[in-house]
């Protein structure tokens, strides 16, 4: 489209292009209407956070209360508990997920028997496609005191005498979330690192071998440094999502004993907002999460850009 670029400097050509592209523009309209209704109209509903919302009245007929709901939020000790849980579980999941996926990619890369590599990979993707409802079922069974495999193995190895009720111990909950996250996503997460490893220049390995470097040294001095850009971009980008530690996983694995360590933002919105009919309060929680996430994601993006890496947006 060199020609249109050169003429567009003169005035009037914009409308000429609009006319020329009227079919494309017509095709765009339904999409814009759809995304506007379903993704942008709810943001208009944020006004509720500044009101004392009563169902049955229109959004502009409500009583305005200013920042009252945010004051309630920041005065609520449960809010700080939720913030702590969310950050802790996000960071645990990010750290464990990244390390395990890189380790799996490094190991798969060393396997020369193709059928073995393919089989391991295919099996490792399976849990990613399974819903958290199913995964939570499996995790509960594995950890159960009533014949769960983990307790069974630990008892057979004489490490413990009595079965442990893992899901009832508050201090363990974050780690159960971390480990079950690794179980579900390690194979999927390794795909991107395997792709990065596959694009490493093979002559690097050849010259390392001439210098007498063994396989461990090659992994440490060539493979890992070569995929460092991928690792840092993924880490930075994921840092932007620390306020969305997931919701299904915590909601489905929690119980009354550990709820003080399991409660994340969406559970908080449900239990302390919607179920108590505090709609305005729940909206304020949602705004807090959304705005802070937005700031984090864009800072992460800028950071990645400054490091000279590819951005996501």
């Amino acid at each position: 489209m060199k020609t249109s670029a050169s003429v567009s400097r003169r005035g009037g050509t914009f409308w000429h292009r609009v006319k020329q592209q009227k079919v494309l523009i017509l095709m765009t309209i339904p999409f814009l209407v759809h995304v506007f209704i379903f993704r942008y109209v709810p943001i208009w509903g944020w006004l509720m956070a500044f009101q004392e919302y009563w169902p049955g009245k229109g959004i502009l007929q409500q009583t305005w209360v200013g920042l009252e709901n945010f004051k309630l939020l920041f005065d609520d000790p449960v809010f700080y508990q939720v913030l702590r849980n969310t950050l802790a579980m996000s960071i645990i999941k990010l750290a464990m997920g990244t390390i395990s996926s890189i380790a799996l990619a490094l190991m798969l890369n060393e396997v020369r028997r193709m059928w073995f590599k393919k089989t391991v990979q295919t099996i490792s993707y399976l849990p990613h496609f399974i819903s958290w409802v199913v995964a939570a079922n499996l995790v509960r069974d594995a950890l159960s005191t009533d014949g769960g495999i983990i307790n069974k193995v630990l008892m057979d190895l004489r490490i413990i005498k009595e079965p442990i009720m893992f899901l009832g111990i508050p201090g363990l909950f974050w780690w159960i979330i971390g480990i079950s996250h690794v179980w579900k996503e390690v194979g999927w997460g390794a795909i991107i690192y395997l792709a990065a490893i596959a694009s490493i220049d093979p002559t690097l390995y050849e010259s390392a071998m001439i210098d007498g470097a063994g396989r461990l040294k090659q992994m440490w001095y060539i493979t890992l440094p070569s995929i460092r850009p991928t690792i840092s971009v993924l880490l930075i980008m994921n840092m932007g999502w620390v306020l969305s530690a997931g919701f299904e996983q915590q909601y489905l694995l929690q119980n009354g004993r550990v709820i003080d360590y399991a409660r994340v933002f969406t559970i908080y919105e449900l239990d302390y907002g919607i179920k108590m009919m505090r709609y305005s309060f729940a909206t304020a929680v949602g705004i807090f999460r959304s705005v802070v996430s937005l700031i984090l994601v864009f800072s992460a993006n800028q950071l990645a850009k400054r490091w000279g890496q590819e951005r996501l947006v």
Partner: peptide, 11 residues
């Protein structure tokens, strides 16, 4: 839309 969502209640 990947970065902003209206939240549970407005939606």
């Amino acid at each position: 839309t990947m970065y902003i969502d209206g939240g549970l209640v407005p939606t």
